[in-house]
Nucleic acid binder design. Structure first.
Lengths: 221, 221
DNA sequence: AAATGTGAAGAGGTTCACAGCG
DNA sequence: CGCTGTGAACCTCTTCACATTT
């Protein structure tokens, strides 16, 4: 049922865990569209993505965006790409503020801008004199003390915490006042009192999964 | 029931998602143990970790390792730390082979060795002449072509793929012949035919969660 | 009395079977 | 007939309530 007055469909019913998959669908479909193909089936898309995702799941997740397929034929690629871009917020650019421009910050900036053209780096901050004042892709690296001064003029709405753990808490607090979402690489839980969307990347935790499973595998042998 | 002859308890019933939390418990408890405390309750541990984990969950997960608490009192810290170390495989060192020593490989090496003393970098490979032949913490950076020659002598059992997407597939295949587990930062699904434990770090996917949720939040406003 | 240990209920996500359309 | 759309079963993980033990 569509409520009168509500013309923009929202998608709260999409599982958070499925978002990265939708992102993958979007990439794959955009690539296929570029070859001139206009129609694809859920099985065809599954084949494109490798063997890890079933056509069942693809259908379920695409259907959650609003039924768009033609039964017996498949999905028209172009509308689907546009729909996915809309749901993922990839119909416009995102400016990212990077806090901490050591190896990690640098790696992230390079990776993410190469990966998705909608992701731009809008501001870079660091505290090290050897980095501050330099440039990356024409973007000045500012001293972190200037954050409040610089950030409002950059229209960044996503921040990335790539500073050492000791500095993360304080810098995250200051960052949270200016962005709506934070990707955090620091191994601490940012105790933020402002409502901000936060994702933590737990690299040590990922490693511990590997060591646990390897230990268990060795125990079996 | 304990089977005769099986003296080492295995822990297949531990949820994979709980492993990073067990790792966090281990860290926090080890830190507390260093202060001289010998007893802690599930609530006390929850307080140490911040507000994100309930004492209920901590009890459930600790209990899955085998009941070790004293009702009415709490958990003896030292045995618990040892038990966690055993389950996580942190009772011995792990040697990590890093493929790709650009900014990401460098950042990962620095981060992970600082984070957990049991994680050591055992080998580093790259293809860039500007990096190959150099050293990091006394470890030589080898040319990737030497992988088969060097890796067997390093006793590395975990590999990290930090190379560009274009090179990831081929390098992962070669790596998989020598390690039991791989942490993959490349945005492709490594089609490996060897049985290897793989964890994929999907940074673009994490970003897409943020953009989706931000878009949705803006749609509400 | 105080905290653990644990079965049961609940929530979230995936897989399945098949109904529904083109 | 082919492929999508979808309710239901299923599985995994979290939360809860309370029995149990010191």
């Amino acid at each position: 049922m569509i409520h009168p007055g509500k013309t923009v469909p929202l998608y709260p019913e999409i599982n958070e865990v499925s978002i990265p998959r939708l992102f993958a669908y979007h990439r794959a479909l955009a690539a296929v569209a570029a070859t001139g193909k206009t129609l694809i089936t859920s099985q065809g898309l599954a084949a494109l993505l490798g063997i890890e995702i079933s056509s069942h799941q693809i259908r379920k997740e695409l259907c959650a965006l609003g039924p768009r397929g033609r039964r017996g034929h498949g999905y028209a690629i172009n509308p689907l790409v546009q729909q996915l871009a809309l749901v993922l917020g990839l119909d416009h650019d995102w400016r990212i503020a990077i806090l901490g421009f050591g190896y990690l910050g640098h790696a992230f900036a390079t990776f993410i801008t190469a990966r998705e053209e909608r992701f731009k780096v809008g501001a870079i901050f660091d505290t090290s004199p050897s980095v501050v004042g330099g440039e990356w892709q024409g973007i000045r690296v500012h001293d972190s003390s200037e954050l409040e001064h610089i950030l409002p003029g950059t229209s960044c709405n996503i921040g990335v915490i790539a500073v050492p753990a000791a500095a993360a808490q304080e810098q995250a607090k200051r960052l949270a006042a200016h962005v709506g979402a934070i990707l955090n690489f620091a191994p601490i839980s940012l105790g933020l009192d402002v409502p901000v969307i936060v994702r933590n990347i737990d690299l040590a935790g990922e490693m511990s999964i590997l060591t646990h499973r390897l230990s268990f595998a060795q125990g079996l042998a």
